[in-house]
């Protein structure tokens, strides 16, 4: 921790003959250049084109029928009831997916950081959901929720959680929990792996010292584990939030945004607008709105991270 607190200090000059110029300007960019070139050509240019759609009236199949419309699309957002419903659903979906994935993932990482019998096999098995193609996991979960061919509704009913063994995906009040559950299943390994790798880089001496000082397990968790994990937690939670907010596949396959828009999130709405209505201009406008929200969110998380690291 102490070593890291000084992380922004410029590295000491190891050899006098290296010029400062080379070290500060050229060297980092030498390491970065492959990444910059790839991202620049493959993502950045299409991204700028994609964002520019939001200021145009553009239909995919009518390339000659487009034109610049300024902020017209953005004004339309304000009065679009569906946009606001989708925004609210996006918050709900993202919040619960991230929070539950994170807590369960942290728990799993802590467990995996202890010794127990059969650990290697256990680890390989619990990480498996991450490897299942999304499309397949969505179908499997939709299948599990179907009372005719899946056991979940019957179990939920006998536990008293549901009054009848019905398909929650058909219930507007509950439908969103279907994809959320599938998402948790799919995403727990992500947090577990990243946090486990971070846990393993905590020097063991710290725990030994804490134990000698008579600290309880909970105390050493709060005083050693959490602070050490904080940077990784901030990064993974932030990225995962961004991904989940943009993640339409599970919802699209499991509920298609329905019933009655109850699981419509911004990214499924973007899909419908772009590829059903073929209104690329408006779809891009919604996407930019999502982008702005996520930018603000990331700004806050990065600021928090900075605060946390410099305790």
């Amino acid at each position: 921790m102490i070593a890291r607190a000084t992380k922004t200090v410029v590295p000491r000059k190891p050899r006098a003959r290296r010029s400062l110029y080379l070290q500060y300007l050229v060297e980092p960019f030498a390491y970065l250049s492959p990444a910059i070139v790839l991202i620049g050509t493959v993502i950045l240019i299409p991204l700028i084109i994609g964002i520019s759609y939001s200021f145009q009236s553009i239909e995919l199949l009518r390339p000659f029928n487009s034109g610049w419309v300024g902020f017209e699309n953005y004004l339309a957002l304000w009065t679009d009831k569906k946009f606001w419903i989708a925004l609210e659903n996006t918050f709900f979906w993202t919040f619960w997916s991230v929070v539950l994935q994170f807590l369960l993932g942290l728990g799993l990482a802590l467990l995996l950081n202890t010794r127990f019998w059969g650990k290697r096999l256990f680890q390989a098995l619990v990480f498996l959901p991450w490897a299942v193609p999304t499309f397949l996991s969505a179908l499997t979960w939709a299948w599990l929720f179907n009372p005719v061919i899946g056991p979940l509704p019957h179990w939920l009913a006998s536990l008293g959680i549901l009054s009848e063994p019905d398909n929650i995906l058909g219930d507007p009040e509950l439908a969103i929990w279907g994809p959320i559950l599938a998402n948790i299943w799919f995403g727990v390994p992500f947090f577990a792996i990243t946090l486990l790798a971070a846990l393993q880089s905590i020097p063991g001496e710290l725990y030994e010292a804490a134990e000698i000082d008579g600290a309880s397990g909970w105390q050493s968790f709060c005083k050693i584990t959490l602070p050490f994990l904080a940077p990784m937690i901030a990064i993974t939670v932030m990225l995962r939030t961004i991904w989940i907010a943009n993640f339409a596949d599970l919802i699209y396959v499991m509920t298609g945004g329905g019933p009655a828009n109850s699981t419509q999130i911004l990214s499924t709405y973007i899909f419908t607008t772009a590829f059903r209505k073929l209104d690329f201009g408006y779809a891009s406008t919604i996407a930019v709105a999502l982008l702005l929200i996520l930018l603000v969110y990331s700004g806050i998380v990065l600021w928090l991270r900075k605060k946390l690291i410099k305790i």
Binding site: I39, V42, I43, L44, I45, P46, L47, I49, G50, I51, Y53, L60, L239, I242, W243, N246, A248, S267, I270, F271, A274, F275, F280, A283, S284, A287, V288, L290, L291, L294, L295, S298
Partner: peptide, 15 residues
């Protein structure tokens, strides 16, 4: 970070 925030759907056509 921004590259992760924009839905891929919107950039698939240019790509």
């Amino acid at each position: 970070l921004i590259t992760q925030m924009f839905p891929l759907l919107m950039i698939i056509a240019p790509i």
